[in-house]
Every structure is written in structure tokens, then in C-alpha cells.
Amino acid sequence: MRLAVIADVHGNLIALEAVLADIARFSPDLMVNLGDLVSGPFDPAGSAQAQMALGCPTLAGNHERGLTMNGANGLDALARPLLSPDQLGWIAALPATLTLLDGAVFACHGSPAGGDEEYLLEDMSTGRPRLDTEAAIRARLAGSGGAEMVLCGHSHVARMASIGGVLVLNPGSVGMPGYRAALPVPHVVEAGTPHARYALLERGPGGWSAQFHAVPYDVETAARQAERHGRPAIAHSVRTGWMPPA
């Protein structure tokens, strides 16, 4: 069983197309999309259509929840008027979590216990993501059932940890390598390179193996899209993998 995992496209269709082309080389048995699909200063409608066409298991992240609220703000407010009624309807119908492969895999955007805005693997208390303690991560796995693999997104940080025999994996972000956020504390996330990220999992007799992939793409065109939408900091992160100084 070979499973491709994508997350946090954030409307970056150019990055998504590069990732999908790379994934096609491996002919996975299944692809799963972990949310934050279209909210970004790139091509929300085009990326929505492309992700709808995949027909793969897809869940809603915190930005999908934001898009379905009348008081959408920030990137959600930017994306919402650019989406068609059909695209908004598809987003509104997405589940918050997914259980795959007869319960062997549990997928969420944030954490099983804390919802779509809780970081599962990271401690943000220093203002930058660092791997949290095993005890803290274990508590956030409550609600994942008997899954042997838990998939998450939200932090945009590609990483994997083994917690009490459960593998927890975040594939990183397809479309946005850096951002700043205010909650739970002010923090910045930076991938360090502009590549589009995804992960490829394979289940064999000895268990799961994982490959993290970083795919180059036309970042300059994506950055110019962000600039046209008035988001120069995101444009800088797309070009470089780093956020500009605050």
C-alpha cells in the first residue's frame, strides 16, 4: 500500500501542479488531502477546481471552516469571493477528520483531541515550532482510535514522530512555506526553502516507511500572484522559504 499525503495547498495551484506531477511518478494507491485548500493569495478558484477533480479523500482545515463563516477575514476573506457556489458547497461538505484503511490511518488537520487549530507535533511557546514532548503529543492523539498512523497538517512543518507505537506525520505545506500567526502565541513558521512539500508512505510487512519530498516549481509566478493580491510577505516566503523581518 502506497499513500501520498498533501496538506496546506493554500490556493497555490502552481505548486500543487508540480506536486501532483511528482506524485504521479510513484503511482500511489491512494492520495489524501489534509485541508487548508484554497485560502491564499494565489489562485483560489483554480486550486479548488484542481483539488475537487482529484476525487481523493479530503478533509476541512481551519481555513475551510473560516470560508464557511459569514465573518471570514484575512486569507479566507480574500479567497471567498473568488470561489464559485459549487466550490463553496464542496468545501462546506468536507469532513473534519478521516479514517482510512479500515482504521489503520487517522487523518486530521490539527490534532485529534484539539481540533483544526491545535498543533499536534509542535510547541510554539518560543515563537518558533519545535518538536513537543512525547507526553504532550500523546495527549493530543486522544480520539484517533486504534490508528497506527496519524496524519496532520496545519503547522506546515514536515516531520514524523513515533508516540507509543503510533507514527504521526505532517507532510509539510504544498503551497505556503512560511507564515506568521498570533495564536496560541505570536509565532513564525519558515520551511527554509521555497519547495512545495508532500510525503509518500508505504506500508510493508515491517510497518510504514516514509519519504518526504521537496519539489521545485515556478515560485516567481506564484510570488507575483501574491503581490497582486497585496501580500508581499507571503510573496517573499514563496520566493525564499523565509519570512521577511517583522
Results as ranks from 00 to 15, higher is better:
Pro57Ala: 03
Pro205Leu: 13
Asn70Cys: 09
Val168Phe: 06
Gly175Ile: 01
Gly89Asp: 11
Asp116Cys: 07
Val38Ala: 01
Leu82Tyr: 06
Ala107Trp: 05
Pro171Cys: 04
Ile23Gln: 06
Ile6Gln: 01
Val174Glu: 06
Pro216Glu: 10
Val9Glu: 04
Pro216Asp: 14
Gly172Pro: 04
Val215Gly: 03
Glu134Ile: 12
Asp218His: 11
Glu227Ser: 08
Asp218Gln: 11
Glu117Gln: 15
Glu134Ala: 13
Glu220Cys: 09
Thr221Ile: 12
Met124Ile: 08
Gly143Phe: 00
Ser209Arg: 15
Ser162Phe: 13
His229Ser: 13
Leu201Lys: 00
His187Cys: 03
Met31His: 00
His195Lys: 10
Arg231Ala: 13
Glu190Cys: 05
Ala181Lys: 08
Thr240Asn: 04
Pro95Ile: 11
Pro85Gln: 08
Glu220Asp: 15
Tyr119Met: 06
Gln51Ile: 15
Gly55Tyr: 06
Ile6Ser: 04
Leu54Met: 12
Ala181Leu: 08
Met1Ala: 15
His156Ala: 12
Glu64Met: 07
Ala72Gln: 11
Arg197Glu: 14
Arg65Val: 13
Leu98Gln: 04
Gly164Cys: 07
Thr193Ala: 12
Leu101Gln: 14
Asp8Lys: 07
Glu190Phe: 00
Ala79Phe: 03
Gln225Ile: 00
Leu3Tyr: 05
Asp76Asn: 15
His213Ile: 12
Gly175Ala: 08
His10Glu: 09
Cys56Ile: 12
Gly192Trp: 07
Ala107Asn: 09
Leu141His: 00
Ala161Val: 13
Arg138Met: 11
Leu101Asn: 11
Tyr217Phe: 15
Pro244Asn: 07
Ser162Ala: 15
Cys56Gly: 02
Leu167Phe: 11
Gly127Pro: 07
Val19Ile: 02
His63Ser: 10
His195Arg: 10
Thr68Ser: 14
Glu227Phe: 05
Arg228Val: 12
Gly61Pro: 05
Leu3Asn: 04
Tyr179Val: 02
Ala246Pro: 15
Ala233Cys: 07
Gly172Val: 10
Pro194Tyr: 02
Arg159Cys: 12
Asp29Lys: 09
Leu20Met: 14
Glu118Cys: 00
Cys108Lys: 06
Arg138Lys: 12
Val189Ala: 03
Gly40Pro: 02
Ala199Val: 06
